[in-house]
Design a protein around this nucleic acid. Structure first.
Length: 593
DNA sequence: ATGCCTCCTG
DNA sequence: CAGGAGGCAT
């Protein structure tokens, strides 16, 4: 068997295990009150619109609290079932997707578009737990609410002001019709009228409120989580740094993401209609869908686990503000066992049962590292999770997004990236991000990982790929995509080799021995730029050797005029494919690459 | 018939 | 990087 024709047997993955249950359970509590929140349509004239609810007490605490909880839940736990209106459900979640994959490329494309099909059963249950967890967080938040309010009254920075304002929200009952003081400096500041004057809501205010509220709620969640973590750290839990555990967190997410184009679907980006330009600080939250929500399903999603169609995809997700911490990735990273989906549920259940003031040492499913978190982890803003708004298929990092007010949004296409940052966060974050990580399809971090793997293996078998991408649910399409990636990697690799070999000949190199590949070599720099753009990975020496051998092969072939044979490269391929190395274990268990 | 490869193209 | 074509091996 020619090593070049390794047959990657692709046993049918048990896609059928993915239950085709797209029921919208557990959404009633978060969706039933959404409709009225969307009054802000372009045609309305603010002054002419009156809210019959304007007379309701503005300090209906219970309503306010409920609304906050609901909104937080919506932000934090967007349902995987939420789908765009008009998007056909046909075939979605169907196990036959995989079976029909061979039939037509159309199906193939369809599948790619629907890589979002998650393990719904698990996700739904976990989301249920997640929602409860959010409420737990909220409780903690409320406990310290007043304290923080006093503190920030002295603060005075814009963000604090916003935060304060978020607590000054006046909920006009009926779930959605509420009024809020517009943010300082916002267009509404001038003509804003005091609630005491009995003014009725106008649409503009409602819309502004809606927008602002989204941001505020997200911030509240951030604060809430931070508080929880602070409590965790202050409760005696040993929180030693985990930094070294997580190698090479990628910072250039936009850059990295931009490398991948349309493997998630290829739908062109579209901006949701946006007739009214919101204040800039709110804009980033605007595009998340429910500005134009027509139904409960178009919720203010942030952590939605579903890849939506571009029309609903956010044009303005959060650009992560992460700290570049270049580590060689040889250090062991988080050793999550992705083959045990129940772990997520266990983590959440633990959190719900015992609250955040407990440690996780009793959780056997948690890696030991989870018992050691950074002592200052409580200070870490939720934003450091580098969560980005999920982007639609065509959005994969093409557009760097303006930083927003720390909205808790997640790019579910880059969840491994989230995990990369997770080492700095306590178990809760890890658990949550881990949950969100469960998804199908390949994301930019898989691509990055694949590129790094290329330093070891140029011709990985399908089994190797399956072994080293344990968080990927393989099917024919995914496998093909991964194989195609490596094919592309090889292509670039060999092109470079040929180019530099020919250049060497042109340059008058007359002996192969004068041709070496070191880390200073131009050739290596070109390769490293391609496979390790962030340069945060210590390329193994063996790769340099293989590269040198390859270069020599090309040099010899060209210098002996073998390149006149149309298939002259095949002999070289045959040599190179035997030079694959074993992959480090870290690749197998870690997505923290 | 199926799957993977390279090559070419966008 | 993805698609498609053509080639080759199973």
């Amino acid at each position: 068997v020619s090593p070049l024709s390794m047959n990657l047997s692709l046993p049918d993955q048990n896609i059928s295990a993915v239950v085709a249950d797209s029921s919208q359970e557990d959404r009633s509590s978060v969706s039933s009150k959404d409709s009225a929140a969307d009054v802000g349509s372009p045609g309305f004239h603010p002054s002419t619109v009156a809210s019959p609810e304007a007379e309701r007490p503005v300090n209906d605490h219970l309503q306010a609290k409920r609304a906050r909880v609901e909104n937080i839940i919506r932000v934090m736990a967007g349902s995987p079932n939420s789908r765009l209106h008009g998007e056909p459900e046909k075939g979605e979640m169907d196990a036959r997707d995989s079976r029909e994959c061979r039939e037509a490329r159309e199906v193939y494309r369809e599948n790619k578009r629907k890589q979002r099909l998650p393990q719904l059963k698990q996700l739904q249950s976990m989301q249920k737990l997640l929602r409860q967890l959010q409420e737990k967080f909220l409780q903690v938040y409320n406990q310290e609410d007043s304290h923080r309010g006093e503190r920030e009254d002295r603060g005075g920075c814009l963000e604090h002001d916003n935060l304060i304002q978020s607590k000054e929200l006046s909920y006009l009952t009926n779930g959605n019709a509420f009024e809020k003081k517009p943010a300082r400096g916002s267009p509404e500041s001038k003509d804003r009228t005091k609630p005491a004057e009995g003014n009725l809501l106008n649409l503009r205010e409602t819309k502004n409120l809606q927008d602002t509220l989204k941001g505020e709620l997200s911030r509240v969640v951030n604060e809430c989580v931070d508080k929880v973590f602070k409590n965790v750290s202050s409760s005696g839990l040993d929180l030693s740094p985990l930094r070294s555990m997580c190698p090479s967190p990628d910072v250039q997410t936009s850059g990295g993401a931009a490398e991948i184009r349309s493997q998630q679907g290829g739908c062109p980006p579209q901006e949701p209609p946006h007739p009214v330009e919101p204040p800039s600080h709110q804009r980033s939250l605007e595009g998340h869908g429910d500005t134009d929500a027509q139904s409960p399903q178009d919720q203010t999603e942030a952590l939605s686990l579903v890849v939506r169609k571009p029309a609903m995809a956010p044009l303005c997700s959060v650009t992560p503000t992460t700290v570049k911490r270049p580590y060689p990735m040889h250090q062991p990273a988080f050793q999550f066992n992705y083959s045990s989906p129940l772990h997520d549920t266990q983590i959440l259940e633990h959190l719900l049962k015992y609250g955040p003031h407990t440690n996780f040492s009793g959780l056997s499913c948690l890696p030991p590292s989870l018992e050691r978190s950074s002592p200052d982890s409580g200070e870490l803003p939720w934003d450091t999770l580098s969560m980005r708004s999920k982007v639609g298929p065509g959005h994969l990092g093409h557009h760097p997004r303006p930083s927003s007010l720390g909205s808790v949004t997640v790019d579910n296409l880059c969840l491994p990236h989230v995990k990369m940052e997770c080492s700095d966060l306590p178990a809760v974050s890890v658990a949550l991000t881990h949950i969100l990580h469960i998804q199908e399809g390949l994301n930019p971090n898989h691509l990055k990982k694949a590129k790094l793997m290329f330093f070891y293996t140029r011709y990985p078998s399908s089994n190797v790929l399956k072994t080293y991408f344990p968080d990927v649910k393989f099917n024919r399409c995914i496998t093909s995509q991964l194989i195609k990636w490596f094919s592309n990697f090889r292509e670039f690799y060999y092109i470079q080799m040929e180019k530099f070999a020919r250049q060497a000949i042109v340059d008058g190199v007359n002996n192969v021995d004068n041709l070496s590949v070191s880390r200073d070599s131009e050739l290596f720099r070109a390769l490293n730029m391609h496979y390790n753009k962030a340069n945060d990975f210590q390329v193994p020496d063996r790769f340099l050797e293989v590269a040198e051998i390859t270069l020599h092969e090309f040099y010899n072939a060209i210098s002996t005029a073998k390149d006149s044979d149309p298939s002259w490269k095949k002999a070289i391929y045959k040599v190179i494919c035997k030079l694959d190395s074993d992959l480090p274990e870290e690749f197998k268990t870690s997505s923290c690459l």
